[in-house]
Design a protein around this nucleic acid. Sequence first.
RNA 1: GCCGCCUUAGCUCAGUUGGUUAGAGCGCUAGAUUGUGGAUCUAGAGGUCGGUGGUUCGAAUCUACCAGGCGGUACCA
Length: 490
Amino acid sequence: MRPAARLPKGFRDIEAAELRATQAMLAAIRETYERYGFEPLETPAFEYTDALGKFLPDADRPNAGVFSLQDEDEQWLSLRYDLTAPLARFVAENYDRLPKPFRRFATGTVWRNEKPGPGRFRQFTQFDADTVGTESVAADTEICMLAADTMEAIGIKRGEYQIRVNNRKVLDGVLEGIGIDPADPEGERRLTILRAVDKLDRLGAEGVALLLGPGRKDESGDFTAGAGLEQNAIEKVLAFVASGAATGDATLDAIAPLVANSESGTKGLEELREMQSLISAAGYDDGRIRIDPSIVRGLDYYTGPVFEAELTFEVTDDDGRPVRFGSVGGGGRYDDLVARFTGKSVPATGFSIGVSRLQAALARLDRQSAAATLGPAIVLVMDRAELPRYQRMANDLRNAGVRAEMYLGTSGMKAQMKYADKRGAPCVIIQGSNERDEGVVQIKDLIEGAKAAQSIADNKEWKESRPAQVSVPEGDLVEEVKKIIARHQG
RNA sequence: GCCGCCUUAGCUCAGUUGGUUAGAGCGCUAGAUUGUGGAUCUAGAGGUCGGUGGUUCGAAUCUACCAGGCGGUACCA
């Protein structure tokens, strides 16, 4: 039986135009990260599963969320699901020789074995920057500024994005205030609360209130268990989440009374105040970076500041319905990740851009950075006996830095013209026996030709007028082709 | 994982109360046009109607299960 030619679920092929746009975006991000002084680092796609911390509890098998396989020595390997866990492994393994703080950026493919959805795939690209080895919130602030600069570097205008900042310690302070111990190792409830608050933008305050309390039934009738908080506890959490004000300082003042009785909350508030003063000193308090108590992040390894990059414009799908892309980047401080390996706490903070998701959002906006790239100039094969001659023309063009190819198929001239059209060729080079005898080549500008065609309805006229076609001496071929390309690259 | 909706040609979709050989537009291929991508006209290729069972004299149509897709929700360490 023949295998079906089919793409695995949740994966996708990426073709030329998108690939070029991706490369352009990666280059812009990289340039920004380099400018902040981060160094590139590449780690492999696979890590030992235990290094990723991905074994199922109480089982000898990796978590279902990661793609895993067993090596010949029966050790479990998993494809990385983010770039942070491999960084922690790298730092732990090379700790002594690395400069501290250690600052690196990394980009690459990550894999998650989860249910795919629109804009959510099982393989995608992230671009991370992290600073490892300092507790200073200056490092966190800088990461936020980096995130803002990066958004602008890839063509998102000021005002179209926002970097939102909060602090887990403040949140813990609020939880303490309602009788939840954040340090409780059985902190299921804390995580449930975090995740509930994380859904604020999607479900609204009423939805979150249900998730904090008895639970919520969604529109399909499915029920989600809640955190089981008392009514006044729910109100306290929601009050905190809603305490965002017009300015960072006003927000901080609004938060202050809510965490005044908590040591952790007070510490977090101090950190936020320090960040706020650094942010405004750098001028990023103009809306680029904002303190927002509703940002919590669903992951539980964050220990201090957390950030999210959001797009503030609406994106619609092909049917005009609004699409929720969620955050296009996020991060925060994770002071305990390296300690998993060394036992020694190493403070770290970082940010990850979801390149694929960001690009999908930009594509919806029709804002792909790279315009349609011109195809190669095509040398038509009019006479197969003269292949070497055509080959030489293509070579001359290539040596002059012009993308060119000789038609490599075996079809006739009409098909060759169609091929050139489909390839987006700026022009074709035609030399049949007539031209060869005269020592000339015909060069047809396909883009001008297409424009001219719009005003020609009659086929005879279309053929005879040969729009946008010139005859030049063979020696002028390269120069003429360059002229045509220059005209269309403007 | 759970809930709901959907699946007919490469794409977008028609298809009567279940009734002969399942259609259209676009796209594709070829010709009209001995050496010119467009336009026009003509012809052609392309379908086990998502799969497998069931009901029926007869199923694209009804039904059960499965797969895939979409949406919601959960999970996303």
